[in-house]
């Protein structure tokens, strides 16, 4: 029966060309992003996109995920699941509360909307690091849009953040996961750049119309 199961032949899609060095470079971008919340960091190397995930998102996955990191996907497309399993060995789980990582391909969808954040693990007061990490695909970080203001560790004073493709209430839901020191840490990823939003970053200010 197992032998008859149809499996997509997508696993031959290449991952990183040079895993050790590529993972190191992507990790440094992620580390800088999380250490300096709100600033944009180019993802230095990325595989080809695989619908619904972009290349930069896949690069983050290949860098951080392995068999120790249960992953929840808002859209578990068979091609993506197969690809990530092949390259990282990551267990893909079907409930967000069992995941350490969540990758949201479309925060505007029902599955990837604000509600899923409440379901992710937030950690406990004596093990706050068990709070999940959420990687969310956004449209971009254009500067002419409604702006939020960020402050906290990693930020010298206050810096602006404007994001497209993130529905109203999504960032508020991320903030709502926080009961310091517990909470969910976020990476916002567009086609080429990543912005870190650790649980310590205060998000305030005017969201304008959006």
């Amino acid at each position: 029966m197992l032998a008859n199961r149809a499996r997509p032949v997508i696993a031959t899609m290449p991952g990183f060309g040079s895993p050790a060095l590529d993972e190191q470079r992507v990790f440094r971008a992620l580390l800088s992003a999380l250490a300096r919340p709100g600033t944009r960091h180019p993802v230095p190397v990325a595989p080809a996109p695989l619908t619904p995930l972009g290349g930069a998102t896949l690069a983050v996955c290949l860098t951080l995920l392995d068999h120790e990191t249960p992953l929840w996907l808002d859209d578990p497309a068979p091609a993506v699941v197969e690809y990530l399993r092949f390259h990282t060995g990551v267990p893909v789980v079907d409930r967000p509360d069992r995941a350490l990582f969540a990758v949201i391909s479309d925060p505007g969808s029902a599955a990837g909307g604000p509600d899923c954040l409440a379901a992710l693990p937030h950690g406990t007061p004596d093990r706050p690091e068990l709070g999940a990490t959420v990687v969310v695909q956004v449209g971009g970080f254009a500067a002419d849009l409604p702006v939020r203001h960020l402050s906290g560790p990693g930020i010298a004073d206050v810096i602006p953040l404007s994001v497209t493709g993130l529905p109203e209430g999504w960032l508020d839901a991320l903030v709502a996961t926080r009961r310091p020191p517990c909470g969910v840490d976020g990476f916002l990823v567009d086609a080429t750049e990543v912005v870190g939003l650790p649980r310590t970053t205060q998000i305030t200010g005017d969201v304008g119309a959006g």
Binding site: L31, G154, P181, T200
Partner: peptide, 8 residues
């Protein structure tokens, strides 16, 4: 390291 940075 990423979690350590997130929880100073």
């Amino acid at each position: 390291v990423l979690k350590a940075v997130a929880i100073p």
